[in-house]
Nucleic acid binder design. Sequence first.
DNA 1: CGTGGCCTTGAAGAATCTCAAATAATGTGG
DNA 2: CCACATTATTTGAGATTCTTCAAGGCCACG
Lengths: 273, 273
Amino acid sequence: MNIANRIAPVRVVPARAQTQGADCAPCHGSQAGIASGATPLKTQCSNCHLRDICLPCGLDTLDLERLDTMMFGRRKIKAGEELFRGGERFQFIYAVRTGTFKSSLMLADGREQVSGFHMAGELMGLDGLANGRHASSAIALEDADVCAIPYVHLTELATGSADMQMVMARLMSREIVREHSLMMLLGSMNAEERLAAFLINLSQRMKARGYSPSEFHLRMSRAEIGSYLGMKLETVSRTFSAFQQQRLLEVDKRHIRIVDLEGLTRAFEARAH
Amino acid sequence: MNIANRIAPVRVVPARAQTQGADCAPCHGSQAGIASGATPLKTQCSNCHLRDICLPCGLDTLDLERLDTMMFGRRKIKAGEELFRGGERFQFIYAVRTGTFKSSLMLADGREQVSGFHMAGELMGLDGLANGRHASSAIALEDADVCAIPYVHLTELATGSADMQMVMARLMSREIVREHSLMMLLGSMNAEERLAAFLINLSQRMKARGYSPSEFHLRMSRAEIGSYLGMKLETVSRTFSAFQQQRLLEVDKRHIRIVDLEGLTRAFEARAH
DNA sequence: CGTGGCCTTGAAGAATCTCAAATAATGTGG
DNA sequence: CCACATTATTTGAGATTCTTCAAGGCCACG
């Protein structure tokens, strides 16, 4: 089993059908309830270029049509802005259309812990159901664009369709599994393994979206990577340098080129014992 | 905000209604599909002493009656035995009735990472939905007794009831939030903070079940605590000793008495910065 | 009463963090 | 277009925390 698959998306069987606990969603016309920033755009899940890796993935034509009847608002978020904040009332689930987000948890003393990075087709906000309030905040790392999916509508839809219910449940479960991987990583890996796992996971997600899996641009800072991986930014930086010296990567600031994927994979399987 | 609340259960509003992503479930009569160990016992959710902290929590009388019509199998597990294993086909969600479990993830190289401890009224197995296979294993830490809840039945029930759907979704979301807390802990706390958080969380869960919050018996070994908290067993042991010297605890092997809860709470809020 | 498992403790070593400084990249206002 | 402020990144060196290795004690069990 490939540990990299456990780091976030977790893709196991047919691939396509499980990109991540995140997905795109139908989008056409804004709707009451969408807070500021809603743009009256008309798009539908069935036409969305992300349909295969997003929410509708796994649904049959009938359910897809029903999804299309929903009026999802679109929302544009500028780099650095919050999509939602921890503690805020939970109303929507958000599907990333373009851009990248980080989600993070706040401690009373102000410490921040990044709990995930989200790219096109991935969902955010699932943690809000528990208490009716978002547990985490979502912040755009670059200018971004999301579908705001009213949770109540989704529930209504699910009431009639077992498939739809299944999809929802699976999405949440996938989020749980994704977090499992992160726990694993935080609980029992060293710096090199963590960073290797992170990069391999990113690589796979880029690939799933049609981008080069071996060369990409990081949207997050060293500090954010560090927070996510449970290490200090200096350690992240040093580990990047180490990988470069081992000729596994070529690093130029945020531009990454994976030179030796096999080696990188070994880097996080190579446990002392 | 109390970080302890973020360590596992995460209880925010009225308390009762959110004990943990785990719950008891109706139990009467065994049913086809329950593997070995099923015992034909007849109990119903509505009569279960765990009903307020388990699955039925939050359901109205009608839904409760519908739950009662389901035939849940009971299963006894001896200390050290597996309830289910990672990779196994997902069929049931399990509610702890008596005893304590640990759930853990396996890495290819054999390393184990404990991802949670589960006590009466808490649910296990929610991570199986994602791929139709359990991602983690559940092992009894002492002789235990569970309700095996066939997932498909639950889905059927949910198809008719928005409330039931809500309950399910909330359970899963709670699991996500619970894991958030662990991530936070693993990602940004030192040994003392981790152990303090762990003990405070345990204390709260004991209290919610009617046991003394200040004096209890640990069901897990130092190694298991260590795995869960991302530290070595020796470090766990040393940290226990340190707390004892600081007169926060009295520790006798697995018997714990919290002498100074306030101090313990400070112990994991007291960050260097 | 011997054996194995679990826990505690010490001492040395390794990994990571902290502090500090230099460099590079970016944006601002003149 | 340039000087300057700001932020992100890299790198070094010492401090700290946690781990590793090792030894001994306690307890339950056969």
